[in-house]
Write a protein that binds this DNA or RNA. Structure first.
Length: 743
DNA sequence: TTTCTGTACTAATCA
DNA sequence: AGTACAGAAA
């Protein structure tokens, strides 16, 4: 019971009142994690609740691991029996054991975002839709949003409002793509990330016996970062806790920054309607930051209209003022930050791990990295390409995935011609077409390849299926590690990487070695016999992200460089928020509506409140964006901070013209570039080949305007000789060249 | 079918 | 600036 004394009054309320629904509004730095962990520990230790009956959901593996560790410190190894993890990991666990009821095997594959997008892309292509209009990013987000709102593809097609939206964005076919996409995922026995939640809802809706089972099991439900839940997550937890009604959610509406991926702030605002007997506890004392920082943060968030009223305050020192610093270029900004870090380190005797540099977009890290490297300060960039996303790693995993599940279309596409074995794009597309038309498994098309293809192709495919058959046999009698090593070498992937002696090649080879090592580690650490199977390994990694794998053995301390989004939940003594410029932070894409701007402001609020003792805000007059130098204005957010908390520090003005010159020079280069190139007219479209006549004036997208000298339509390859103004005579193949008739 | 080259595009992020 | 990919050539 020692831990009770570490808590203030409202924290104690939140920990001790274990019965009934409870909403904890936890301001930044108010000890939210402490409350959650102690509440769980209290349930187990004081009230003798069975850890198996407690469900605790978080958004990141990191958060759940951290909490588990802290609970274990209080209650011991009992903590390991908690149902604690991310939404996705907990519900994929349930789906693996109950999924057969909705037609999935227990070893279903999980598609990551890249798999999903590439599947969408191929569907768009197969359907003959315009790939410019139906870009996979756009379609993916549309589908993802629908799933998060629990709108199935059939409902999507029926829903008038949605159909109107798609029609007015000139993309009426999205519903059809959605339907095809769902079919193909199911056929591949695969779920994407959203399916893990969507299908859990389906399971609970259609099979009440299963719902009842878990309602009985989970006597206590706790949710972290509740402001980030989407409708799908909200409904699952509502259903699960509707019997015991012991649901405790913790969140902060001011830190809701994930609306773009479906998070719905109304979940927090409407929670009271669902549970009239709700107890609301506000944690308003900030233990993290100085008075200046808390005051500044409050003065910013006040500008938002929609919020739950609360007064965050602190007992901490007043502390230093917030420094606002201007520079003339992104590179100079980097240098300035590096030298300020150097000074602060010496002045306050801080170590690298006390510093963080936060930015709005990942691309801003480059300039900072460069100057830190030059000055010799260790740093670590978070959120670059994740280990499991690397091509060479994904390749090996695709082999494992296909060996485990021969219906997995995305893995098949990846490995069938890797390393090269003479099976090209067209063949793969045909195979998938046959599988869809005849409604048979991919693997059955491959096994009966001679029925459908000529000897050359079926020979190549035959070699591939023999290879996979061998792997399937091998896997039955060996653990994952042996299997992965076997596959890596027999497939020829290892050899190909080994022969690549470039620096990148060496790197890739090392990455594969590292993957094999991590698999070895996985089976060495597992106590259970079944943990050494391929399935178990694939399940483990499919829900891992980059931050979960960063094990630091070097013991060296480093400065953290990351986006503001990634910094949520973290704290540092000294924080730099760089690139405080209009159109960057707030992002130009978030200026169109109050709702978007308010989310952007909350993001800034998150950035400010990461800092414990000292905060720097920096901006630059000029910045390279997409390879072009742009002039920048300071961010409106700087103005929004109450002046009594800030000090302005401007660097000398001797270089005032420096920026202007740079911009002029840059503009000249762009202009000269433009002159050499034909810019296609706005209404450019391809004219019907049959309408082309000799002597006509035509436009070509690249070569510009010209006249047709000669047409050759009769031979099997239709050609035209065109005399262009810009580039002279060209012979064009009409099956390729797009020509627009001008007159 | 494979390899090479020019072009188009570009947030944020978790699972 | 950097990358992913479509189109053209081999």
């Amino acid at each position: 019971m020692d831990y009770i004394n570490e808590l203030n009054n409202s924290q104690r309320d939140a920990v001790l009142n274990i019965e009934g629904p409870c909403l904890v509004i936890a301001g930044a730095g108010s000890g939210k994690t402490r409350v959650l962990t102690y509440r769980i520990a209290h349930l187990i230790k004081q009230h003798n609740k069975d850890p198996f009956s407690i469900l605790a959901l978080t958004f990141t593996n990191k958060a759940s691991n951290e909490m588990k560790e802290r609970i274990e410190k209080v209650v011991g190894t009992d903590a390991r029996n908690l149902w604690m993890g991310t939404f996705h990991s907990i519900f994929s666990r349930i789906l693996r054991s109950e999924g057969s009821r909705i037609g999935y095997p227990s070893n279903f594959t999980i598609y990551d975002t890249k798999d999903s997008k590439s599947l969408i892309k191929s569907i768009v292509k197969e359907q003959g839709f315009d790939s410019k209009l139906y870009k996979e990013n756009y379609v993916y987000n549309r589908i993802s949003n629908a799933k998060n709102k629990l709108i199935s593809c059939n409902e999507y097609l029926k829903n008038k409002i949605i159909q109107n939206e798609d029609a007015s964005s000139l993309r009426p076919k999205i519903g059809i793509i959605y339907k095809k996409y769902v079919d193909r995922c199911f056929k591949s026995q695969a779920m994407d990330f959203d399916d893990l939640l969507f299908n859990t809802n389906t399971l609970f809706k259609e099979h009440t016996d299963i719902l009842n089972k878990y309602q009985q099991l989970f006597k206590y439900v706790l949710i972290d970062e509740f402001q980030d839940t989407n409708f799908s997550q909200y409904l699952i937890t509502k259903k699960l806790s509707s019997v015991g009604r012991n649901i405790c959610v913790v969140g902060d509406d001011a830190q809701s920054i994930y609306a773009f991926r479906g998070a719905d702030i109304n979940n927090i605002l409407n929670f009271e309607k669902d549970y009239p007997e709700l107890q609301i506890i506000k944690l308003e004392q900030n233990y993290r930051s100085t008075k200046n920082i808390v005051g500044a943060a409050n003065s910013v968030i006040e500008k938002n209209r929609s919020k739950i009223s609360k007064k965050i305050w602190t007992d901490n020192h007043v502390g230093e003022l917030i420094s606002i610093k201007k520079s003339y270029s992104d590179n100079q900004e980097g240098k300035m930050v590096a030298s300020l870090i150097f000074e602060e380190k010496n002045k306050k005797q801080l170590s690298n791990s006390n510093f963080a540099v936060l930015y709005r977009t990942n691309s801003q890290s480059r300039a900072i990295e460069e100057s830190l490297r030059r000055i010799g300060i260790n740093y670590k960039v978070y959120g670059s390409l994740s280990f499991y996303q690397r091509k060479e790693v994904k390749d090996i995993i695709a082999y494992l995935r296909f060996v485990a599940n021969q219906n997995d279309e995305q893995s098949l596409r990846r490995i069938i011609n890797l390393p090269r074995r003479g099976i090209g794009k067209t063949t793969i597309e045909k195979i998938i077409l046959i599988s869809n038309e005849k409604n048979i498994r991919l693997w059955d098309v491959l096994l009966n390849i001679k029925k459908y293809f000529n000897p050359r192709v079926s020979g190549a495919v035959g070699k591939f299926t023999d290879l996979i058959k061998g792997f399937i046999l091998f896997v039955e009698n060996n653990d994952v590690y042996a299997s992965a090593s076997h596959i890596a070498s027999i497939s020829g992937l290892m050899k190909e990487l080994y022969n690549d002696k470039t620096i990148e090649g060496l790197n890739r080879y090392e990455n594969v070695q590292e993957l094999l090592n991590s698999i070895k580690e996985h089976i060495d650490n597992s106590s259970d016999r079944k943990d050494i199977s391929i399935d178990s390994f694939l399940q483990e990694i499919s829900l891992l992200t980059d931050q979960d794998t960063d094990n630091d053995e070097s013991g060296e301390e480093y400065i953290s460089l990351m986006t503001v989004h990634m910094a949520k939940g973290l704290e540092f003594h000294v924080v730099f928020v760089v690139g405080m410029e209009e159109d960057l932070f707030p992002s130009q894409m978030m200026l169109s509506s109050r709702k978007d701007l308010e989310e952007e402001r909350r993001l800034f609020y998150v950035a400010i409140t990461r800092s414990m003792r000292k905060l720097y805000l920096t901006y630059s007059n000029t910045r390279y964006r997409y390879g072009i130098l742009k002039e920048c204005q300071p961010s409106r957010f700087i103005e929004e901070i109450d002046k009594k908390y800030t000090e302005n520090m401007v660097f000398g003005s001797s270089k005032a013209n420096f920026a202007k010159n740079l911009i002029q020079k840059n503009q000249k280069e762009i202009d000269s570039h433009r002159k050499l190139r034909h810019v296609p007219s706005e209404n450019f479209h391809r004219s019907e080949i049959n309408n082309l006549k000799e002597g006509m004036k035509v436009e070509h997208q690249k070569f510009g305007y010209g006249s047709i000298q000669k047409l050759d339509i009769n031979s099997h390859q239709q050609k035209a000789i065109v005399n262009f103004k810009l580039v002279g005579k060209k012979t064009l193949l009409l099956s390729f060249a797009k020509l627009r008739i001008v007159s």
